[in-house]
Design a protein around this nucleic acid. Structure first.
Lengths: 218, 218
DNA sequence: ATTAAAATTTAGACAAATCTAAAAATTTGT
DNA sequence: ACAAATTTTTAGATTTGTCTAAATTTTAAT
């Protein structure tokens, strides 16, 4: 499998998950910053190799084999992200670019050893679940901070927007995964929130709140 | 710089070191298991980019910039080898193939962090020196075990043949870097050696002895 | 020194992955 | 339902890295 094929498979998974709904070539092209005609070429190739089902003019969806392949790539990406943060002190906005390269390294022993070294983590630094070796993973029961009611509380478990800009903003404001967050009050006017985080009160915009995932306390 | 360019530069360095002697396209082709005509094409490209000096029909040699580039790739390769052995318990015959992939990862921060994680090692698992960030490295004062005289002793510091077959053989016979070796007697007939290693006496062939590097005790 | 052998380069082809521009199919709006 | 707009595919070109076969240059031998 070439690096390019792997990138297409990963993108198709991110756009369609394991559903059998067809993903348009346009959507894939946009996501990958390439041209639809290039996607068509690759779609044929991936269909030939059994990774996707491809219906002309309709789009593609991953076969079971394609899903298995995608999960293996995502597993590698997320494990490397954890490695970079836990072992090499990368900040969470720095990991993605390097993990994009490391995810293509071909060695089962290598990634299994990294997994063991990290003590089999279940979530990556952005809170996304890491598929196990056999492709299973658990999406955490979580909700957007912006959807929480006043006088509820929970733990910050993930981010929706994973751009470096957003992650740097969170760093600067000491918002990190694992932090306890209490919703004090919601402004009707702009939907901004007054919250208490790790003992300190602060005021955050709707835009920020709608990109933070919270696991509600029982 | 493409992966292919990096592989050519590395090979040219391994064949010619930092000397200005010209390396033939044939030699490079043989080493890389490719065709001389492919090497010619790449030689032109590398010359254009300033990595090598290329004289038609004569061969190539690395420029200062090419040497710097080669050392940076070798540094990455060897640091990854140490990482695999020290942190992930790879055996020394397993590291090369994976390091061949890892050496192409582009992130200065990554390799510097790996270097620090490993506490700035000076030698890789085969005893080869690891260039520092600024391209300096010290070749250890060493000699082949087969060149040592009876009644001398030293420490095993490297291997000449790095093939998996040879490394596995050494493992099986508990011959490892750091072991103390005393030469007891040399057979005139087949040049085989009687040695004492870590307290135990054994008899090794000339072929083995001529692929083990020893640092003589003062 | 001339020729035969060996090494090296050139020319032309190919596969992978991409692009542009044009053609074809699908979707949308009325 | 049909024309217009949009999406998707096809056809042909480009780049990178490779190859084969032929031509050229260098080296070696007598």
């Amino acid at each position: 499998m070439t690096r390019s094929e792997e990138n297409y498979i990963k993108t198709i998974f991110h756009l369609g998950g394991n559903s059998s709904a067809l993903i348009s070539t346009n959507a894939i092209a946009e996501q990958m910053e390439t041209k639809p005609s290039s996607v068509t070429d690759m779609a044929k190739k991936l269909a030939e190799k059994g990774f996707v089902y491809y219906k002309k003019y309709q789009g593609v969806s991953l076969t079971d084999f394609g899903i298995k392949t995608a999960l293996s790539i995502i597993r590698k990406h997320r494990l490397w992200e954890v490695f970079l943060v836990e072992k090499l002190d990368f900040s969470w906005d720095e990991v993605h670019e390097v993990a994009e390269q490391l995810e293509h390294i071909k060695s089962e022993k290598l990634i299994d050893s990294i997994d063991a070294l990290l003590d089999f983590p279940k979530y990556d630094p952005h809170g996304d679940p890491i598929p196990s070796k056999d492709g299973k993973f658990m999406e955490r029961d979580k909700q957007l901070l912006s959807d929480m009611d006043p006088n509820t509380e929970g733990v910050c478990v993930g981010v929706k927007d994973t751009s470096a800009a957003f992650l740097k903003f969170l760093d600067k404001n000491n918002i990190a995964l694992g932090n306890t967050i209490q919703v004090l009050e919601k402004e009707d006017f702009d939907l901004s929130l007054h919250i208490k985080m790790e003992g300190k009160e602060l005021h955050i915009s709707h835009q920020i709140a709608s990109n933070l995932y919270i696991k509600k306390n029982d």
